[in-house]
């Protein structure tokens, strides 16, 4: 349709306070609704358009460049206080196309589409030839490293047996040959010292997550170092159910629910 009066768009200045405010609302939405991985912070606003909307309001169409932080999605640290992943740790950037509606002075996220990609290996090696490089999280070396790290963690646990939830990132270090892994675990209803069959252990209804970092040397019988940060337990949140459906299963074997999923439906309002 031809553009009528008032239906066109205006190119905004990417560094305008209002554009930055819209970008921040989008970033908050992205970080609140992460299914896993790490929180991101704004690095650069690539494009900003303002479209008028009928019958009322304005639509902000933004292209955002983000950078991965070291805070896991389950970490409650505000993203602005999270350190950006350094280039020597093999940084990861995000490219996001977002649309926000501004009405009555309030922003509401309409759509978000993000794609993340790591820095190129060549760039990291140029910066430091011995820096560990990111590798696929499902590679054999990584899977073995995570298993070894989790076994070491559980061997020293005086309480619950912890189960793997997610492998968040993995790097291969050349000297000495080691695998650096970052992963999420959750407490189960089994006692670590008494577990005989881990497959029979169930995640607790009130989720107790921990984020772990481990260095696993490739040399056989070398010492594995693993440190985990426990997060506050996440209370069981009843999910709104459509009429005629039964209440959600919240037993120990119920599927995991991130609190972020609950806020997704409503959308953030500034």
């Amino acid at each position: 349709a031809p553009h009528g009066p008032g239906l066109g768009y205006t190119q905004l200045n990417c560094d305008d306070p209002e554009t930055e405010q819209a970008a921040q609302v989008a970033l908050d939405y992205i970080n609140t609704n992460l299914a896993g991985g790490f929180k991101h912070v704004l690095n650069q606003i690539d494009k900003a358009e303002l479209w008028s909307r009928r019958p009322a309001g304005e639509i902000y169409v933004l292209e955002l460049d983000t950078l991965e932080t070291t805070c896991h999605a389950l970490d409650h640290t505000p993203p602005e206080k999270c350190p950006v992943r350094e280039r020597m740790e093999h940084a990861v950037e995000g490219d996001c196309d977002v649309q926000l509606l501004k009405m009555d002075g309030q922003f509401r996220v309409l759509s978000v589409k993000c794609h993340s990609s790591p820095d190129s290996a060549e760039d990291v090696i140029k910066l430091c030839p011995d820096c560990p490089l990111l590798v696929p999280r499902n590679s054999t070396k990584v899977v073995h490293a995570v298993e070894a790290a989790l076994a070491a963690f559980n061997a020293h646990s005086n309480g619950s047996y912890f189960q793997l939830v997610e492998v968040s990132r993995a790097q291969l270090a050349p000297l000495p040959p080691s695998v650096y892994v970052e992963f999420v675990v959750a407490a189960t209803d089994c006692v670590a010292k008494e577990v005989t069959d881990p497959t029979k252990c169930n995640l607790l209804a009130e989720k107790q997550y921990a984020f772990c970092k481990a260095a696993v040397p490739e040399k056989v019988d070398a010492e594995v170092s693993v440190t985990c940060k426990m997060f506050q337990t996440q209370p069981v949140v009843p999910q709104p159910q459509p009429e005629g459906t039964s209440a959600p299963e919240v037993g120990p074997g119920a599927p995991m629910t991130h609190q972020a999923d609950v806020t997704a439906a409503a959308g953030p309002v500034l």
């Binding site: 905004l12 560094d15 912070v41 690095n43 650069q44 690539d46 494009k47 280039r87 950037e93």
Partner: peptide, 27 residues
């Protein structure tokens, strides 16, 4: 360069509204 009176100034034309500033580093 001929600038018409009342047209955009050269300074205004030089302003690049986007992309915006880089806050950390560019990959």
């Amino acid at each position: 360069v001929v600038v018409k009176p009342g047209g955009p100034s050269l300074a205004a034309a030089a302003v690049r509204p986007c992309p915006g500033r880089i806050r950390h580093f560019k990959i």
